[in-house]
Design a protein around this nucleic acid. Sequence first.
DNA 1: GTCCATGTTCTTTA
DNA 2: CTAAAGAACATGGA
Length: 281
Amino acid sequence: MPELPEVETVVRTLQSRLAGRTLLRVHLSRSDILKGTHRDLSAVLIARQVGSISRRAKFILIDISGGGTLAIHLGMTGRLTIEPATSEPRPHTHLQIDLSTAANSAEQLRFCDPRRFGRLEWLPAGHNDARLGPEPLTLAPRQFAACLATTRRPIKSALLDQRLIAGLGNIYVDESLHAAGINPLTRTCDLSPQQLHRLGAAIKRILLRAIAAGGSSIRDYVDAAGVDGRFQSRHRVYARTGHPCHRCHTPIARITLAGRSTHFCPICQSSAPTRTRSADS
DNA sequence: GTCCATGTTCTTTA
DNA sequence: CTAAAGAACATGGA
């Protein structure tokens, strides 16, 4: 579910509902979703106050008073929501945190994740993940080209690599490549400066539009208030195999690339991928 | 029963 | 060293 626009939407909808509140009780029913060396969430969270909430790549970062950050990755099916404490938690709710009452009724911060690809981690103050590449939304065009310049991999594969650029996933890579008219199989190092410029601009444009629409809800994704995104109806290639391209009406094709289903228009994105796998062996 | 799924990480292979 | 391919993780829906 969660790529950069979905995570950003969760962060924004969490801000007004969670910031400033005190954490009263922590119930982690599955400790195997807890990553890292710090094994006792209660010890660092209880009676602490929530500071600011932010995003880095696909991680939700919840700052806690007194230092330290709770980092949450939603994996494929994770939901991080604020719900009435009296409501029945949905199945596969692994974390419940009681919040100080905000005028109305008692509420909980809940993390639910059926597939359990999501992770929680306690990060002591000052921690940052050096493996993550730069944020696509705050990247000058020249820097965008620079962080991809070194690789010969297909552009789709490079854009999915969080070490090169952080926050894109399968939906927004496919959508961005279509918007830029670039074939996903094209070797990154074969892209012209013009193509790279177009791609960088397309990525920003699409991410911003998706954020404005509250992200894409394919199956599980909801914001912190439980509300679906609306960007899925504006996808031009993702999950539109066989449907007409919005620009040229050619049926959208689907291949497997980098282990992921990859959707593109064979006409609008026909930039010949000069990949001769067997020619050099 | 089959295939597929918004993600990451590890192993194997070249 | 790069990198591609596959598997693994786990659950549910079509």
